[in-house]
């Protein structure tokens, strides 16, 4: 693998949120079920079922995480944030039984990120959510590490399919490490190669010409 001079801004760790990270911005776009606890005058057009000009108190609506986080205030009652169903009691039991069979990409794809962000909202279930998210990761990690270190020159799409976004990037790092090690063993690590950036540009240009 060629050295890459572009590394994107890394996402924040745990409950943190990195302002400039593209991943964190996409994560905070995830929708949460919310209930308004105060009226929002003149914003009725944002809510499909409402026929008045206002969002009434007690309206159930889906809000993106960034908005819920911005409006939420533990002292003043503005919005109440509900848990998405994968973090509720029922699903927590499933994760407790065997986290390896769950398709986290379908459930998430930001299962860990969103789970950590939910801890910003005071909820009596917070400790349980945190515990489940942590245990899920611990029990899935072994398989991810194992497969990323041993699948060499194979089609990995079946392995990656069920992984959450964060797990995918872990898997990719593992694979990159494995490939670099194999190159070193073959004595190829001192070979200079064309920049992958340049090569990809060229591929795309050819594709455009053919189209």
């Amino acid at each position: 693998m060629a050295t890459q001079s572009y590394t994107p801004v890394p996402p924040g760790v745990g409950m943190e949120d990195n302002f400039l990270s593209l991943d964190d911005i996409l994560l905070s776009q995830e929708k949460l079920p919310c209930r308004t606890e105060t009226a929002f005058p003149r914003l009725g057009f944002l809510e499909k079922s409402g026929d008045t000009g206002d969002i009434q108190e007690g309206t159930k609506m889906e809000m993106p995480l960034w908005l819920a986080k911005g409006l939420y205030d533990s002292k003043r009652r503005v919005v109440a944030v509900d848990l998405p169903k994968v973090y509720r009691e029922g699903w927590r039991t499933v994760f407790g039984a065997d986290p390896n069979v769950v398709d986290l990409h379908k459930m998430g794809p930001y299962y860990y990120g969103l789970g950590s962000q939910l801890l910003h909202f005071d909820s009596p279930e917070n400790p349980d959510i945190a515990q489940t998210v942590l245990q899920t990761f611990v029990r899935r990690f072994r398989r991810i590490m194992d497969s990323s270190q041993n699948a060499y020159n194979e089609d990995t799409s079946a392995l990656v399919e069920k992984l959450d976004c964060m797990e995918r990037s872990l898997f990719r790092s593992g694979q990159a490490g494995l490939h670099d090690f194999q190159r070193w063993e073959k004595g190829q690590s001192s070979q200079m190669t064309a920049s992958s950036l340049v090569q990809n540009y060229r591929k795309r240009k050819f594709a455009e010409l053919e189209a």
Partner: peptide, 27 residues
């Protein structure tokens, strides 16, 4: 509440644009 709502949206847009421009600069 409405004012706060709009303000959140303003900040959100600002964040997205800043991240867009910054990531492009890295590239």
């Amino acid at each position: 509440p409405t004012i706060k709502f709009r303000h959140c949206c303003l900040l959100r847009n600002q964040r997205c644009i800043a991240a867009y421009l910054y990531d492009r600069l890295l590239r």
